[in-house]
Write a protein that binds this DNA or RNA. Structure first.
Length: 222
DNA sequence: GTCCAGGGCCTAC
DNA sequence: GTAGGCCATGGA
């Protein structure tokens, strides 16, 4: 299966080019983006990030200081803004309490330990935690999401139940431990599913189509 | 007007 | 343990 996944990766990369994720200037901005993009388009999330930036609120200290209600008004475009304001504050308070506000100290942790910590914060689930680890922390943690599930279903890469952990294990068990590969693979899947190949059945131009039909595997096979 | 986007939490069963 | 409701914008 590793060969198949690498072949798909090469085709996606050749078709779309490197996505150069995450589109952010700082690691904190990646984390804020990972929370704000939950169940909303990147465009809407980006608007909210820019708004925070414009009002000098793109730092842990600023987010802790500002009132939750006020914070919410700056991120309205990101949808579910009251909840997301609470989530941003929850993360910043955790960062302040556990690491004196230092992102570097936080990422000095062991990946698995930090993943457990992040998952214990209100508002950070598996996808958000893995996005933070991979794209802000540059740690080896594959990101799965609804697009990844759709991708696997569409190309029959895996049979049976497809929950977050199964999909994530499928990629981590069948890919070499390579940060660049993890980074680009997830970004390319999102790009492929979102902007280019939304329809089922597959479009004729689909770069993955030619190698998809013959390869099916049961979970765990390599 | 309708649909759906780079989720996660809470509650009821 | 898990299905389903809730949150509640903006662009296509």
């Amino acid at each position: 299966m590793e060969e198949v996944l690498l072949e798909i990766f090469d085709k996606l990369l050749k078709s779309y080019g490197p996505r150069k994720w995450w589109p952010a200037r700082t690691r904190f901005e990646v984390i804020v983006g990972a929370i704000l993009v939950q169940n909303v388009s990147w465009k809407n999330a980006k608007k909210a990030i820019d708004n925070l930036k414009h009002h000098g609120l793109l730092s842990p200290e600023a987010i802790i200081s500002v009132k939750e209600k006020t914070l919410a008004t700056y991120i309205i475009s990101s949808r579910f803004y009251n909840q997301k304001a609470r989530k941003l504050k929850a993360f910043c308070k955790y960062l302040e309490k556990e690491y004196c506000g230092s992102i570097s100290k936080m990422f000095a942790n062991d990946t698995d330990d930090l993943r457990k910590e992040l998952l214990s914060i209100n508002g950070i689930g598996k996808e958000t935690a893995d996005s933070i680890l991979l794209y802000a922390g540059r740690k080896l943690s594959f990101v799965s999401d609804s697009y990844t599930k759709r991708f696997i279903e569409r190309y029959n890469l895996l049979k049976g139940e497809l929950n977050y952990d199964i999909i994530r294990s499928f990629f981590t068990n069948n890919l070499p431990e390579d940060l660049y590969l993890y980074n680009e693979y997830h970004a390319l899947i999102v790009h492929h599913c979102y902007s280019t190949c939304k329809s089922i059945p597959l479009c004729n131009e689909c770069p993955v189509k030619s190698i998809s039909s013959k390869n099916m595997c049961a979970f765990g096979s390599k």
